[in-house]
Write a protein that binds this DNA or RNA. Sequence first.
DNA 1: CGGCCGGGTTCCAACGTTGTACTCAACCCA
DNA 2: TGGGTTGAGTACAACGTTGGAACCCGGCCG
Lengths: 354, 354
Amino acid sequence: MTTEPSRRRRPPRLRDVADLAGVSMKTVSNVVHGHPHVRPETRRRVQAAIDETGYRPQLAAQHLRTGSSGIVTLAVPSLTFGYFSDIAQHFIDRARELDRTVLLHTTSDGREQELEVFTGFKRRLGDGVIFNPLLIEEEIFSRYEEFPQPTVLIGEHVPDGALPRNADYVRIDNVRASADATSHLLATGRRRLAFVGALPPGPAPHPHGSAALRMTGFGQALDRHGIDPGTAPAPEVANWHRTDGRRAAHLLCAEHPEVDGIVCGNDELALGVLAGLRDRGRRVPQEVAVVGYDDSPDAPFAYPSLSSISPDKTFIARLALDMLAERIGGYEGPPRMVTAPHQLIVRDSTAAAD
Amino acid sequence: MTTEPSRRRRPPRLRDVADLAGVSMKTVSNVVHGHPHVRPETRRRVQAAIDETGYRPQLAAQHLRTGSSGIVTLAVPSLTFGYFSDIAQHFIDRARELDRTVLLHTTSDGREQELEVFTGFKRRLGDGVIFNPLLIEEEIFSRYEEFPQPTVLIGEHVPDGALPRNADYVRIDNVRASADATSHLLATGRRRLAFVGALPPGPAPHPHGSAALRMTGFGQALDRHGIDPGTAPAPEVANWHRTDGRRAAHLLCAEHPEVDGIVCGNDELALGVLAGLRDRGRRVPQEVAVVGYDDSPDAPFAYPSLSSISPDKTFIARLALDMLAERIGGYEGPPRMVTAPHQLIVRDSTAAAD
DNA sequence: CGGCCGGGTTCCAACGTTGTACTCAACCCA
DNA sequence: TGGGTTGAGTACAACGTTGGAACCCGGCCG
């Protein structure tokens, strides 16, 4: 509103506004916060002074005084995965509705970064945290019965022990979802299935805990149809990016040309697989069907459009943030565990072979 | 490191650590900050006390005392665009290297949100801001000669007036880049070009200021080749998402079947256009060539792989953040304006027609 | 007409941290 | 031996805000 840029070096404080309006600091504070017991006339005068000085409260001081900042930390592995950037946007939107601000971190660099997020960093900041522990889940469950800050975990296991008293858990049933995807391929008549997404075993667990679970689901579904999971090819991939999928597809074409259906660990891999099959002249879905996981925004625009497991991102973001907000707001009840719904979106890549 | 969860309601303060170690608060502070003049023995004792209590400094207090928080605000239109989530990740990475934290905002909801980011929100927070004003650029340039906080703008115009004294500008030469893309199509022999990305005129300017500029570049290139830009079809799109591109492609096929090259406002549109052409049985690149803009991570995996203008995101993120860090660190020099480099990545979608 | 009530406001302290000024001891060279 | 320097540590105030106690004043009831 002010047209004249402040010439002062330091931004205006409550004090400055108070002096200008001829009232006490507290009265200004009351006006700022819409406290009811202020005479209209006073309110008007104070508001004018606020406008004139361009005053805005300083969060640091409020935070120090009141003990809460309105900031929530969100940590995802990496925004370069469409799934995570998508879900991050959902979180940001919901946070705005709740009048909170999102501090975004990415943890793809591993254990250290996860621990950092979990413990609240070198510095204490933000009122709580939402994140998906990929590497440190075991560790933190066994170590704490109360987490260092209000926490909502997004995870894939049913945790073994009890949840810490100040945490909630949004669970995504990877095993079941992946089995659904696999059953779908079986239902369309494919029998020689492969799984793309297995990770090389290593001393350090890999940043994609989902890999094992999704593969388990794949195996379970085969089992249920009387197929020995041990016979299904599952080429190892170094990571879960498109390139890895493409490479895996090339490999499958060379070593297992009989494969007629591919279940992928995520959509990125699946898109890479589609490209790889194209490179080798294999037709999808006529010769090979492909199903992904995440329902990333690319899926409907792939060629052919990609069938995929679609976790309900809006649900996840909304629920996680709401539960965290309740914790921050003082909710002291028992830890909650909710399983997020998912559905299989069928598109062209798994149409019945003709 | 501590195995026993803190039972105290309030987190440990400097004071608690100091008492436990039998030194003054300031000495603890010195240890925390690696101040040199502390006896090794004392340092050890203090460190032990820190470990035992699980102390972490509280950012709010540090911020209040020192006037800086180590947080920078980054605002992008929306993470659902691959380009922006990609660039956001670059920012986050660079910020970590500089030991800063990113507060992420999205401004796709328009003017209000942009103003909010620009002025520093309802609350003053963060040491500075990086963002791309789409709607309010004019407004803020005419209004301020000094911005309310250290600011780095990412933009597309050469601003008319002088830059405010405490801002820097990273410029992306949309006109030139778009002309490059267009010239490329012309060089491969296409003559009946169309532009997909024009926005409906409206009283309120639209969230994609780039639209006009990229279209201008398109026109300039045509002009240089002796083609009247007025004759080139440019169907309007409601937004810059894939769906809009698909719809535009359908329209072009129906009304301008002679078109043999399409320049798109961004990759999302281009991917939609590829899908739309596929829907109508038009072959790319044999019958129609398509070029995008942004070099989103999808481009190389599209079918056919998509040629695209690739702005140097690493350069942009690094430079913008470094300049902001300098400003925050006290740099008082004149405003700087840097043009970010771009290149055209040629892939299958613009291979010469055979 | 005095005491009470409560709306409107002021005053004060405290949140946790760090910069400045200060103290005290040990050490060094003239 | 003494003045000055350096190293190690302490005490205190201040950053901007808000909750609570205290205060003032006009109106109402007894």
